[in-house]
Design a binder for these strands. Structure first.
Lengths: 323, 323
DNA sequence: AACTGTTACGCGTGACGTAATGATG
DNA sequence: CATCATTACGTCACGCGTAACAGTT
């Protein structure tokens, strides 16, 4: 039994049970992979792969288990490397954050700036996607932190920390009729065509639910995954939109006006998602704390160890930050 | 990085940071250990061991982390082996149960018999100790299951399943004065010298608490770790004792009588203790289910995954079993 | 002197890559 | 015939053990 064998096994599982692909991905030879996996099977006295003819078509039941175990082992080895890196230089390393466009563009900019100032040695990188993609990145270990509202798919093994409470406002073109209303209602809003976040975003869904509760079906003319795109369409007069309050900046967003809508839409919660069983570099904890002061290292580790999600009430309102 | 290195590291940590001992325990040479650990440190670019002169005096902070990680990895490898064994022959294997004398001698006998009949290929072995020793065995992986009330030391990383509710009775020599009382009281009991379970057993402590609540201090003449020893002393007239109801058998225990005492002592709960993150052979689950029908595999796995202990109310009364 | 950890060195196993073979659609 | 897995084989490295060395008590 051998680390290499576990690496090979997981890679084979990840590459659709194709030894050639796995070999390629690992920069090694097919025969090597084949041999090592057979050796592992021999040692366990159990077939891990279902071979039909000379194709591999499935994992056996023990094979499934073995892959799961191998993944955990490899993850722990990653952690071991991190422990080393942390002790070599706690200020140097990398941090990959997967998040949505809106979070990256508006929320994270000031935080990232402060973080970079504090930890110039940390290679910070942002990856964008919709919540499902974000989860996938975190689960695959390609991102250290995920930040988004809530994916549409289930995500076992990921811990979620309620971080930010997101209130929404309504964006309209300047001199829009709605600006003259004293108090906005769902009814009034639904009179205009809407531009929304894509359904893969919790934001898009939650807003539609608020309308549905009042048995109103607004007309959605377009949905997008990018707050800036939405704003551009609103400015062009195609419709109105509902976006996080912090996605609007009166100074920059010429041609747009925002209308308070806290009474119309309950706040959404942005969660931080992270792998359980993952060693957290110290600067990662600092980053989390910058997002929400409620989450310092002890709280985070407590939440990682616990199997039930912390209360959404732990999320804090986004503090207005200088961009 | 290498499995051998992790094995060496944990063994060194376990043998009081003594390379020679570790080498001996692993049937290999000291230089090998030394070299491999240095290689690991080199790869992580971090000292894991604190060397003073040419002694190793401590683990560094990253060293502590590394040992913890290594242990987890090695445990997972054990699990992988078990997955293999399970699939080779689900009926064959070994099961080590650590428990107290009283459980082994009275409770487990019929269960073990039934289990052996069902799984003749399973090598069942019992190890006895007080609760602290039992925990240690389970935590070290030397026992698969622990069965006892509750240890006096904290045990992180062990899951506990409430299994059996234990009611106690009072044992006295035949023709003892207490036999004539209509209804037993703490006060009446305390008039006689007592023989109790050792303080390392929860049973011993719980009984004393019941007395303490009434501000009565009974006279303890002897404490032992073995129910049979206690019974022998009671029979010899040295004192009276409080033991689980099932530890008394009217037919066998000549010279002894039992007096109901459910109204005097609240029931204790026997817990099954097991390692989280340990692959459970199917027959192990069966054994657990024989102890308490409430715990079938799904329930057990749920409890293993959860970080909060299940409710004590899940424990069931011990069913009278033919010995 | 006894014990401990580290360095030096030679041996053999075992992992890897190349090439060849089998099997399948 | 293209694609994929397995077998065969030679090479090289790495892990191991022996021996020698160095630092403590």
């Amino acid at each position: 039994m051998n680390l290499q064998q576990l690496r090979y096994l997981t890679e084979v599982a990840e590459r659709g049970l194709n030894l050639s692909r796995a070999a390629e991905a690992l920069h090694t030879s097919q025969p090597g992979i084949s041999k090592q996996i057979r050796l592992l099977e021999q040692e366990l006295r159990t077939e891990l792969l279902v071979r039909e003819g000379n194709r591999i078509t499935a994992l056996t039941e023990p094979g499934e288990q073995a892959v799961a175990i191998a993944r955990r082992v490899l993850r722990e080895l990653d952690n071991l490397r991190r422990v080393g890196e942390e002790s070599v230089d706690p200020q140097r390393g990398s941090l990959v954050i997967a998040t949505t466009h809106a979070h990256a563009r508006y929320l994270l900019i000031p935080i990232v700036q402060r973080f970079q100032a504090l930890f110039p040695g940390v290679n910070l990188s942002l990856r964008q996607g919709n919540p499902d993609q974000i989860m996938q990145l975190v689960q695959a270990g390609e991102a250290d932190l995920g930040l988004c509202t809530r994916p549409t798919v289930a995500t076992p093994d990921l811990a979620r920390l309620p971080c930010l409470r997101i209130w929404r406002c309504v964006l309209v073109p300047e001199d829009h009729a709605l600006l003259k209303k004293r108090r906005l209602t769902h009814q009034a809003l639904a009179a205009y065509p809407m531009i929304t976040l894509d359904a893969s975003f919790a934001g898009g869904v939650a807003i539609m639910q608020a309308f549905a509760q009042e048995r109103i079906q607004p007309q959605v003319v377009l949905s997008a995954t990018d707050a800036d795109v939405i704003k551009a369409f609103v400015a062009s007069g195609m419709g109105i939109a509902t976006l996080p309050e912090w996605a609007f900046d009166a100074k920059r967003d010429a041609g747009l006006r925002s209308i308070p809508a806290r009474h119309l839409f309950p706040p959404a919660v942005s969660y931080l998602w992270l792998q359980r069983h993952q060693y957290l570099r110290d600067y990662a904890c600092e980053f989390i704390r910058m997002l929400s002061a409620a989450w310092a290292r002890p709280q985070v580790q407590q939440a990682l160890a616990s199997d039930q999600p912390p209360d959404d009430a732990l999320a804090v309102d986004v503090q207005p930050q200088p961009t």
